[in-house]
């Protein structure tokens, strides 16, 4: 990433959105401090936190357990506990995440008809909201609904956290080693 070109603060961000993003960054920082992938992810419905997640790929040995997928399952649990219709809840839920969702997660968010995703930095390796593919905006048949993205909030910080993580994670990694996701 070009560090000389720090993206401007996205203008569409409301104060409320900024405070949720700050919470997401706090989660990412906690993850980093605990040696985990520094991605923070929150799902907010009606100004209420209904799900949050961190990467659980290692624990579950399931490469699809990204923070977003974990957060989605929490929302499903929340719906069950509160006797709410999950389809309706997702259609009115905003996802806040420090890193652009990957292609898989973007597909999942489409299927759930999440209307808006607010994220920090781009995901150059797997990004599904424009970096590698634009799953968010493409006109794909039978695959839920397109969603809107507001990106760039504190992008530099999100990138720095990821860089720190990959540096400390595997100092002796061979050059060809495939890095972890996000």
């Amino acid at each position: 990433m070009d560090t000389t070109n720090i993206p401007e603060e996205p203008s569409e961000m409301t104060e409320e959105m900024k405070s949720w993003m700050e919470k997401a960054f706090q989660m990412a920082q906690d993850a980093l401090d605990n040696g985990e992938v520094p991605v923070g992810c929150l799902m907010v419905h009606d100004n209420q936190l209904v799900g949050q997640g961190r990467n659980e790929v290692n624990e579950t040995k399931n490469a699809t357990r990204h923070a977003e997928m974990v957060a989605v399952d929490q929302v499903l649990d929340w719906c069950r506990k509160n006797d709410r219709n999950s389809t309706q809840v997702f259609e009115n839920t905003v996802l806040y995440v420090t890193v652009e969702p990957c292609i898989m997660c973007a597909g999942a968010l489409r299927l759930l008809r999440i209307p808006l995703v607010v994220y920090g930095c781009r995901n150059e390796r797997f990004g599904g909201c424009g970096s590698v593919l634009n799953v968010a905006g493409d006109d794909i048949s039978d695959t839920g609904a397109q969603f809107k993205c507001i990106s760039g909030y504190n992008a530099q910080k999100a990138v720095e956290m990821l860089k720190t993580f990959y540096k400390q994670e595997n100092p002796n990694a061979p050059k060809s080693k495939v890095r972890k996701k996000e």
Binding site: N62, T64, I103, M104, G107, L111, G128, L133, D142, T143
Partner: peptide, 11 residues
């Protein structure tokens, strides 16, 4: 679908 295809790729 796109979600599953990328899940297979991640795996």
């Amino acid at each position: 679908c796109i979600m599953c295809s990328m899940a297979l790729l991640h795996s």
